[in-house]
Write a protein that binds this DNA or RNA. Structure first.
Lengths: 223, 223
DNA sequence: CTTATTAGGACACATAAAAGACATATAACC
DNA sequence: GGTTATATGTCTTTTATGTGTCCTAATAAG
């Protein structure tokens, strides 16, 4: 699965240009022009990166940042027309990771996004880094699962699914959100594929499968 | 209240650098260079996070992990020297939440610590949109009810009903009104379904069930 | 005390998810 | 290029869970 970015910008011209550059660079781009729908989009796709314009009608970039930060520590880039230090402090306090001042070059923005992602990825998955739960250790480098000292092979989908669940521990994830993130937006099959892969993951997790909770009517949750 | 971390590392140089980074990030840092005093420190300060070097004289990181785990589920990060320790991790009892391989960047370690803390905190005190009453917290995101620290699973209807009551606190709600809002206008069944679901909600609310008052001849009220 | 109304329990029915079987797609190998 | 193995996705059956109805006991109102 490629990198996904949620782009929130009300000026159509800027949004389209930026989106094009990101697509060119291999990103999957979700676009919206206002803050309140941005939150809905976030919950639906769980993007790897969020780019927010500060100046937007109704719900501005700061407000969106606050809402997103309630949900996760996903990298956030704020786009600003103002360059005053007050704004910067305000934004950093709220949890934005970077500031890009308008006018900016889309190339530079993509470059910053990539370096931020790289940092975030290292931060999530540094080499040799592992996450454990119960008797299990997930090796983020070899994409393997170690269970009671034994190696358990995971298929790519199983691995992606497990990592997505782990990164959103304790959050209820709808089939929709899981599909969008692990399978991608272009997947147009039955949302029950998620069930099938959850089933297979549970089988491989064996004694630790209880961590994956079914949330009836919605989806799943990792605890 | 600031975050506190107990740092157990026998190499002075590493310990001091790491401690500095954590202090810089607003943490209160307790340091010690050996495993046995680590337990004493733990009992004295009850830190929010424990960072342990695996390789230590006398009592190693695994032993300390075991001791700490007897006391609580506090987040633990183990520092391992290169991947040669991977083999050791195989056979040992687990219980640490993360493993960071040396050499590591102190920045990354602080970042990991923060995200781990965030997860742990979310787990204990879910943020996001919540409504609380008495000892209960309703999480509008996970559709769950937390009662005296324990998660209580709500079915979709129970959740909708509870949220409707909460949104109209202190208002007497007729069965008709409840039906129309929670079941929808098209529902053509018996209005006594409301009673049944109120009953089930009360059972799940247990000690907080007194908030749901019966208004005889009309319906119910949440106080 | 009588009647109206609700609570509680038992049960039937509806819906959602798990399990299993199978078909198709993808990759690896000869 | 054809063959095999593996991974992925769909379909059907089984199981679990949620929902709604009914009946009886308890409780409140008149």
């Amino acid at each position: 699965m490629g990198k996904t970015v949620l782009l929130v910008e009300d000026e159509v011209r800027i949004r389209e240009v930026v989106a094009d550059y990101f697509k060119q660079d291999g990103w999957e781009v979700y676009e919206t022009d206002n803050g309140s729908s941005a939150i809905d989009w976030y919950d639906a796709v769980y993007p790897d990166l969020v780019i927010l314009d500060i100046m937007m009608p109704q719900m501005d970039g700061f407000a969106v940042t606050r809402q997103v930060r309630k949900r996760s520590g996903v990298p956030i880039i704020l786009l600003t027309a103002r360059s005053s230090d007050d704004d910067k402090i305000h934004g950093f306090e709220l949890g934005a990771d970077e500031y890009v001042t308008k006018p900016f070059s889309p190339k530079v923005l993509v470059a910053r996004a990539n370096s931020l992602m790289k940092r975030a990825t290292e931060h999530y998955l540094p080499t040799g880094h592992m996450i454990s739960f119960g008797q299990a250790i997930v090796n983020m480098k070899s994409h393997q699962l170690q269970l009671e000292g034994k190696q358990v092979e995971l298929t790519p989908k199983e691995y992606e699914l497990l990592v997505f669940l782990l990164h959103h521990k304790n959050n209820v994830l709808s089939r929709e959100a899981i599909l969008n993130h692990v399978w991608g937006l272009d997947f147009d099959g039955d949302s029950r594929v998620v069930d099938t892969h959850i089933k297979k993951l549970r089988a491989k997790l064996s004694c630790e499968s209880h961590h994956i909770k079914t949330v009836i009517g919605t989806g799943y949750k990792f605890e």
